[in-house]
Amino acid sequence: MSEAEALNDTPPAVADEKPLLQISNIEVIYDRVILVLRGVSLTIPKGGIVALLGANGAGKSTTLKAISGLLRSERGEVTKGSIEYEGKSILQNNATELVSRGLIQVMEGRHCFEHLTVDENLLTGAYTRRDGNAAVNRDLELVYSYFPRLKERRSVLAGYISGGEQQMTAIGRALMARPSLILLDEPSMGLAPQLVEEIFGIVTRLNEDEGVTFLLAEQNTNMALQYARYGYVLESGRVVLDGDAKSLRENEDVKEFYLGLSSGTRKSYRDVKHYRRRKRWL
């Protein structure tokens, strides 16, 4: 490895390699009338950690569900645009097919199976696997090695463990599917700061050691931009800004609206600037 490469802290960009996930200009409508996404495009490189930022109702969860095939059961529909995973369109695929192809979502609010034990919760993640019990049990131990706290609580019902442990269970459950891409929706929600750090730390390790790619929807902009390498900012269903994490952290508007670091005089609500739609041609 040359000196220049070794010093470079971002992985070498391979320009000609296809991204793992490519979303182009999607539009999502709920209940046939409620237009929620108005042309969202994202590129998730293989091995990356990409943050999807935005305030309440910006459309982060909707974007993730559009990818993972969970929209349909909420009467949502992708009406325009394309979503390609590993180079193939996945608009027609359901969640079961996508999970078996290595794309899985960890839903906002954790959604553990409260009446199942931690162990059983994790095992449900392996439902689509066909590689036998031995492999599944090996991965169970692997998950416990990332989340040693869970191991102690493995036979407790998930309804009785703490919020942080539930978040770990939800992530661990997704890992049991042996995913290449995890869509992680607001893992920091309702958790104490050091717990959030612990969880993001594990996400980083999973990314580096297991090669799992992450798309991370977060309201906690500060935290997300510390761990992600690239970020997109959503506002009212549109991408209004994107860039690598460092440039976003230093962007004045991000500082003001999302990091709460206002520079200079505080503007009144009226003056809050809304980004105009940036046309993205394909």
Binding site: V99, I104, C112, E114, T124, Y127, T128
Partner: peptide, 23 residues
């Protein structure tokens, strides 16, 4: 059994069950 576990998962939270690929 695996199917039984999936049955209980579906009854507990069908959205979460769907999200992990249980049909």
């Amino acid at each position: 059994t695996k199917v039984g576990r999936a049955l209980r998962a579906v009854s507990n939270d069908h959205q979460a069950a769907m999200s992990v690929g249980i049909p």
